[in-house]
Design a protein around this nucleic acid. Structure first.
Lengths: 240, 240
DNA sequence: TAGCACCTATAGCAACGCTATATGAAGTGA
DNA sequence: TCACTTCATATAGCGTTGCTATAGGTGCTA
């Protein structure tokens, strides 16, 4: 009926909220349910978390830790784009196993907590994409690529969550994933060769150099020189 | 204070709900607010719509009509993939101008109404993609392509909605859009490059950029800027 | 022992979604 | 014209929600 009485009320509240949130089929979870399961009374909740939303934020933060841990856990394969694929799949998997947590994290607009979470997820991806950029494997700046891929990843995951379980088709995920990665990558594992002027190769090289510079802290240029240099690089990178 | 008394209560309820939903900054809208603005009492709402959710569904349905109308309004350009681009942009625009409506439509899981809406949006896209398929312009079945593109479209739109208005960057949309379309299309308007021997370092990238720049006559930099830029490049390239 | 944070409980408020019941208006058939 | 049905609206109030004013314990330090 109630929770482990040894644990402090704050922890019991967190666990109770997480459990109820996970098992509620989309229906809202009331503070009374939570406090009853945790074996405490209302003011305790508000003392520790200020708000119902505050409690949920704490639950989400915990869930996000789990998500990030999942994203970091596998060792780099040496093939950055392959790792990006695994990060994508891990993201989808997290959304499907914890749909309610995921919805609070990504399916809502909550100007306070959401951008931070999104930014974190983005930088995880960007980190990996930077490696790909250094290896000259992508033709788009890592930051933009990360934003774009993450957006598609979120969209796919929400789509799958909303779909009834029986006709949930993961092919949507793999197809969209590979489309996005293919689009930003320099591999031309596609038919007809390319002719185009050297312009896009300039862009690729500029992006690669930019990423490499970020990673290496080269000291060949003074900081003021470097600043201007990077600005020019960016200008070159973002030419059409 | 109240709404046009000439209109039937049902219509007034719909308009009041739509107006309040549009102007509420994410905060929930109560039935009491709605009935007060519409100038009716509670049972009237429940007589016509059964439910608060029923009323909201009706509002969403109206909003969806508007969305579909927007998707259909422009005449086909004869270039199906170009039309897909415009549908994408229209979708994003709809989401940004009616964020709360959009969130109810796409950012939630509501097993009843959502799949129908999604299916409709999907078939609009699929219709257009079928034309592209007939013209041999895509290399993926239209249905799968539509699902995939729509998922990415939704993800991007939610991303943009969640972003604070001042640093909302539509480039995310166009880039993701073109990535998705490029990935499913048979056109290979892609640059060469991807020559690199695999070893990646600042030096290699700098050399590559240097060579590429020599060959391409990029006009992103003025001649004086270019001169200094190349000098720095050389300094970086000849570092130990 | 006194004082002081900290934490928790009792009790209850205002607002919420919703409804049992009643009343009015409008049409229909004899 | 009159009962009868049907649809639409209103009065009043139920149960639940998120939240809080207030007070009581508990364990420290002085």
């Amino acid at each position: 009926m109630s929770f482990d009485d040894q644990l402090p009320p704050k922890t019991r509240l967190l666990r109770a909220a997480a459990e109820l949130l996970a098992n509620s089929d989309g229906s809202p979870v009331s503070t009374r349910q939570i406090t009853k399961l945790a074996g405490v009374t209302a003011p305790t909740l508000y003392h520790h978390f200020g708000d119902k939303e505050g409690l949920f934020d704490a639950v989400v933060a915990a869930g996000f830790e789990e998500y990030v841990a999942g994203e970091r856990d596998f060792a780099p394969s040496g093939e950055p784009l392959e790792d990006v694929r695994r990060m994508w799949d891990n993201h989808v998997q997290f959304g499907l196993t914890q749909p309610h947590l995921y919805l609070v994290m990504f399916g809502n607009i909550r100007p306070e907590s959401r951008p931070a979470i999104v930014a974190d997820a983005e930088s995880l991806l960007e980190e990996m994409l930077s490696k790909a950029a250094i290896a000259g494997q992508i033709n788009v700046p890592p930051r933009e690529a990360a934003r774009s891929i993450l957006a598609a990843n979120v969209g796919v995951t929400l789509m799958l969550i909303a779909e009834p379980l029986e006709d949930r088709n993961l092919e949507l995920s793999t197809m969209t994933r590979d489309s996005m990665i293919f689009a930003v990558s320099t591999e031309t594992a596609r038919g007809a060769a390319a002719d185009d002027s050297g312009k896009s190769s300039v862009v690729v090289a500029a992006i690669a150099l930019n990423a490499a510079l970020q990673a290496s802290h080269s000291d060949q240029l003074s900081s003021s020189e470097l600043k201007l240099f990077l600005e020019w690089l960016h200008r070159i990178s973002s030419s059409s």
